[in-house]
Design a binder for these strands. Structure first.
Lengths: 340, 340
DNA sequence: TTGAAAGCGCTAACAT
DNA sequence: ATGTTAGCGCTTTCAA
């Protein structure tokens, strides 16, 4: 039985060369924008390419150039909920926008368990991509090591946990959290709790650390009962806020370490009959740089994702070119919105 | 200046062959699990592979096999908001789980404008992937045609707009919407509005159509003022519900064509002082098959994503194998939850 | 400016 | 069961 649905073989360089009446090498030069081609030859090739609808075979090309011209953005997140966090979408959009007018391709890879992480390691080692941007690194995460050992150019979105010498781009999470706590202190609050991010992520740890520093510097107690761990989701924020109200019913302010969590925390506060900001002032942390995720808008710490995403790709491209890339920490700032 | 950070060249088949004391062909056979290899040779190769940490070069392999063993899941969505819809996450998770214990790789590609769509078309034609699953097709969408013309195996997630003969998997959206409307009718409601999905998407159109059919079959008016167009987001649902209340203040029930929109619609209803379900009964449409996205849980139409995602990959693999793939429509059903 | 030829790392006949 | 050989489609010296 013959295969009637077979795809038509795509044209090759040779066929273009024959049609254009030149050699393969010349066609290749035209394709690759070499200046060493006569205008006539260039034109002949161009028209042959158009006529045959020729598209270069990337496998063949990569085999010799050792380049794929594609980079991977890895979403390394066991928690499926978090996957629809606007923060992810913002990074994806930003990186993809940065790459839009280059001829680099961007592919997204997701890993939810160790098996999938190994699969991604394999994918990278097999030479599918020139480099990797890794998001959402957890404390016990094997992926950074897998990729580092494989010698794949790598940039982390977020400071690595163990001080390993990997290139990364991160916001000044600790400084941002300090700003938040100092803002609350400056409005006279003294019993300031915090809903943290997941503490197996550096952003969670750093933001908690900044909160603690600010309170201690002001001589205010940063007691364990004032801390509840969330998971960066709305539901998690609501849950953590409920814990906090239980453990520290006297709190008069709270720093919530991400905006989706802040939305959940506000819901809990309202359900508990606490007025915001009169009874409890709230400061959020705007992961996604999307204004007004909640109503009324909070005072938030803004991290400039618009600055971070170009840096991510810049550091990666530098490494792909064999240069060394300095990690970067971008400043955060306090944004006061209408209420709170 | 020498490049000091150059990556160590990865070992090749030849080096493995030399170390194992066999020919390249034998190594290749071992790698590809051919039965025509002696146990001794197999063992020698295995140990050489381990020793050299050999990983096959996929470019070289693909060049001859014409297979990349990777498929692309394309998120074709201009509206960034929608990108964090749990529906997307569910499909991604489902397809990725289906592929987890195969040796197929999954890459996600996103397109937000025509330029990015063209880039994806190019990516596919260059031979990076064996096939494409395309999500979120809009009415004026060039991507299905681009990919079809390129001869890439293709499965749409959602019925194509213009009746084109493309393989697809879809839920019975029209039937589901009928179920929803009939349920509301059966509880005695007669002024039943609908918040639709975007009407440039087939799911939006079909669900509107099902609503209309059910009302007309029951001899109930399905007036334009009872219809407000949303965009599948929570904010859009809230907005559309507000329009609806304006145009049809007398409505006593509403079919909201997606769960995120239902959450928004409920917020609007409550803000307007309408009690749910006493004043206004609500039925949602559970795109993400995640129970209880809102509180209290709604009666919803459930589409079985758990069935759809294996079908998507099945149809695609069939096409990749050169067979013809029959499109599939999976049934929806009504799920009555606590309230409403 | 152009062409001829070698070769990237692998698979797949074919021969043994 | 194993080795030899001929490519896959492209880039890239090297000559001309």
């Amino acid at each position: 039985m013959t295969d009637t649905t077979a795809r038509p073989a795509s044209p090759t360089l040779d066929e273009v060369a024959v049609l254009a009446g030149v050699s393969r090498a010349t066609v290749s030069r035209v394709i690759n924008d070499s200046p060493r081609v006569s205008p006539e030859a260039r034109e002949a090739v161009r028209s042959a390419v158009a006529q045959l609808r020729y598209v270069p075979n990337r496998m063949a090309r990569s085999l010799v150039t050792r380049r794929t011209d594609t980079i991977a953005l890895v979403l390394n997140e066991p928690n499926t909920q978090v996957f629809s966090d606007p923060f992810f979408a913002s990074i994806v959009r930003g990186v993809s926008a940065t790459l839009a007018d280059t001829d680099l391709n961007l592919v997204l890879l997701t890993a939810r368990d160790e098996r999938e992480q190994q699969k991604i390691g394999r994918y990278a080692r097999q030479g599918h991509v020139d480099g990797v941007i890794l998001m959402s690194v957890h404390s016990n995460d094997p992926l950074p090591e897998i990729l580092e050992e494989a010698g794949i150019p790598l940039v982390l979105c977020g400071r690595p946990f163990d001080g390993r010498d990997l290139a990364y781009v991160d916001a000044d999470n600790s400084g941002g959290a300090e700003l938040a706590a100092r803002h609350l202190l400056s409005t006279g609050r003294r019993r300031i709790g915090t809903v943290t991010g997941p503490l197996d992520m550096i952003a969670g740890v750093d933001r908690l650390h900044g909160w603690r520093s600010a309170l201690q510097a002001a001589g205010v107690e940063a007691a364990p009962r004032m801390v509840a761990e969330g998971d960066f989701t709305e539901a998690g924020g609501a849950r953590a806020m409920a814990e906090l109200l239980e453990d520290a019913p006297d709190l008069d302010a709270v720093f919530v370490a991400s905006d989706p969590m802040a939305v959940g925390a506000l819901r809990t506060l309202r359900a508990a009959g606490r007025r915001v900001p009169d009874d409890v002032a709230v400061v959020g942390f705007d992961d996604a740089a999307v204004a007004a995720v909640c109503d009324p808008p909070l005072t938030t710490v803004a991290q400039p994702l618009g600055d971070m995403t170009p840096l991510l790709t810049e550091l990666l491209l530098r490494q792909i070119d064999g240069e060394r890339a300095e990690s970067r920490i971008v400043p955060t700032r306090l944004v006061r919105r209408a209420s709170a």
